[in-house]
Design a protein around this nucleic acid. Structure first.
Length: 574
RNA sequence: CGGGGCGUAGCGCAGCCUGGUAGCGCACUCGGUUCGGGACCGAGGGGUCGGAGGUUCAAAUCCUCUCGCCCCGACCA
């Protein structure tokens, strides 16, 4: 492809609203343009990358035996009404009326629609298992689209759905998908972890997220340095802390201390000269109809998802100031479990604090020498967030480390949630009518484009892995001498014949402009043809990962096509 | 949903407080000099200042409404 005939509008300044590296670079390098909040044009380079990611996903889905289909993005409301999601999905669902006033929506996900296919087309256990997938645009009216392609209102997703005769079959389908996902993420050159995840209100079924490790990621995960335990902090557990378990509980009696105006953990620890670990942080949560006081150590944080699971509710919300004052009789900052009238859940680590400090439920007063079991009672549970340094729950001696990640894939076993309510059944060997056991498996294809950049870029631009780069080789010609141009033309032809994708910057621009654009665009191999090296019968080769601008490898012109083709092939294989 | 902010040329911004009829950089066009890491000189083109209403002799500027967009938060007492 000739640069001069392409549409690659690179710019020096990023749009003012871009904050993520991927958003800035995709915009500056001319891959995407914003159309509206969470909606983007894919310009030629961007679309090439998107299609490459799609192709990898398709190849691995097909290899895993999944069957590609395409369902509509525009959907009649009846299916979501059938499962209740028309109401449950809330404002995130893009709702539409047709000219007759009928309810429609744009598909945010397709469990209902695919289940409808299954209930109409699948009759017998002999047809199972089946796995249907599509690569399609999804629509979600996100409360806050952000980060360019990272969180869009319209985005490209691969969603697959498996149907099995029983739980064991579903597990096997799930495992097959897990392996396919591993291959996909490996081929894309990403550093990632498969982590245990919250399967939400769906139930306690198997679920795993594929988290691409990036410091700018929205999700927090922890992973063990010894074993393969890794989990979203929402569901991560930690071992009870032995050092506090070993300390003898205080014999000192409970005592009131005056702490005027000192309500926060920071202020109280400083004022009283105690450690954060001695504090019993007490937070009032709204859980369903009632409230609950959650108690964790001052150096720990409440894991709201685990708290909700412990209480058997979908979600908990931190209570507002007014509710806190009503429930404790004190201003915010002075809540505590002692004398608290209501349900208390205390984290295991907090329950082992030998002599705690906590709010007295009286403004400007705290209590010290507080002991769980002596001074107050409550339900003990693991309700704190895991953090770096915590003991691994799944092996001996392992320590957890915190990472940030971007969720790029999520696989889980759905069970019969949709099949049972929608009547998607089959007849088994014994003539029984049973609901299909389902699994679902998503990959954010457009998100992966951005995620890859988040992990592969430097100050000068993108650094694509070969597998998803818009072109394999970026050919830069310097000057407009006949010798340079004809050499470039021949090399270009030879490479394209060898199946190498080449972008030739043939523009009448100064070398500096071309080099800057090449770095920005991020094609993995750059070849420079200029009078200088050509005089010695050479071309210059520089991988995008080489940051020193002066470091380029001289390759004899005669070998150039072969060497480049080999490098491309090696990179694609590795 | 709460808080903050922004809409002025394709992009990035100034002008607004203190009304007087729009400017800078990049990009673009033309001419010239240049040419191995975002050149320089000269000459140009391009904007109903997000929209509507109001105040005023006069509105990008002040007031009201509205639309769009962005950031932060959804918070650890």
């Amino acid at each position: 492809m000739l640069f001069s005939r392409a549409l690659i509008p690179t710019v020096k300044e990023a749009p003012a609203d871009a904050t993520n590296a991927s958003h800035i670079l995709l915009s500056r390098a001319g891959y995407i343009r914003k159309v509206g909040a969470g909606m983007y044009d894919f310009l030629p380079l961007g679309y090439r990358v998107l299609r490459k990611v799609e192709a990898i996903v398709r190849q691995e889905m097909d290899r895993a035996g999944a069957l590609e289909i395409l369902m509509p993005a525009l959907l009649p409301a009846e299916y979501f009404k059938e499962t209740g999601r028309w109401d449950l999905y809330g404002p995130t669902l893009f709702r539409i009326k047709d000219r007759k006033g009928g309810d429609y929506h744009l598909g945010p996900t397709h469990e209902e629609i695919v289940t409808d296919i299954a209930r109409r087309e699948i009759r017998s256990w002999r047809e199972l298992p089946k796995n249907l997938y599509q690569v399609q645009v999804k629509f979600r009216d996100e409360p806050r689209p952000r980060g360019g392609l990272l969180r869009c209102r319209e985005f490209l997703m691969k969603d697959a759905y498996s149907f099995d005769a029983d739980e064991a079959g579903a597990r096997s389908s799930y495992e097959t998908m897990r392996q396919a996902y591993v291959r996909i993420f490996d081929r894309m050159g990403l550093t990632y972890r498969m982590v245990q995840a919250d399967s939400g209100a769906i139930g306690g079924n198997t679920s795993a997220e594929f988290q691409v490790l990036v410091d700018s990621g929205e999700d927090a995960i922890v992973a063990c340095d010894r074993c393969d335990y890794a989990a979203n902090v929402e569901v991560a557990t930690v071992k009870a802390v032995p050092e506090t378990a070993g300390a003898a509980p205080t014999a000192e009696p409970l005592a009131r201390v005056h702490t005027p105006g000192h309500g926060t953990i920071d202020e109280v620890t400083k004022f009283l000269g105690v450690t954060r670990g001695a504090m019993l942080k007490s937070l009032l949560y709204v859980a369903g109809e009632g409230t609950v006081l959650a108690v964790v150590r001052g150096d720990h944080d409440v894991n709201e998802v685990r708290l909700a699971r412990t209480l058997g509710v979908d979600e908990v919300f931190l209570a507002g100031e007014a509710d806190v004052e009503k429930a404790t009789g004190a201003k915010v900052g002075f809540a505590g479990p002692v004398g608290f009238k209501g349900k208390i859940v205390i984290d295991r680590a907090a329950s082992l604090v030998p002599a705690g400090v906590t709010g007295a439920n009286e403004t400007d007063w705290h209590l010290k020498n507080v002991r769980f079991g002596r001074d107050f009672e409550g339900q003990v549970a693991d309700i704190r967030l895991a953090a770096t340094g915590d003991a691994c729950p799944s092996c001996d001696g392992g320590k957890l480390t915190s990472y940030r990640g971007i969720e790029a894939g999520h696989i889980f076993i759905l069970g019969t949630k949709y099949s049972a309510t929608m009547g998607a059944t089959f007849i088994d060997e014994k003539q029984q009518t049973l609901p299909l056991v389902m699994g679902c498996y998503g990959i954010g294809v457009s998100r992966l484009v951005a995620t890859t950049i988040e992990q592969h870029h430097d100050d000068n631009g993108i650094r694509w892995p070969m597998s998803v780069a818009p072109y394999h080789v970026h050919l830069v010609t310097i000057g407009r001498e006949d010798a340079v141009l004809s050499t470039a033309r021949e090399l270009c032809d030879a490479l394209e014949k060898a199946g190498v994708e080449v972008l030739w910057d043939d523009r009448d621009e100064r070398p500096g402009v071309k080099f800057k654009d090449a770095d920005l665009i991020g094609i993995p191999l750059r070849v420079t043809i200029g009078a200088k090296a050509l005089a010695g019968g050479n071309v210059e080769l520089k991988p995008r990962t080489e940051t020193d601008p002066k470091k380029a490898e001289l390759v004899p012109l005669a070998d150039a096509a072969r060497v480049l083709a080999e490098r491309v092939r090696a990179a694609l294989a590795g």
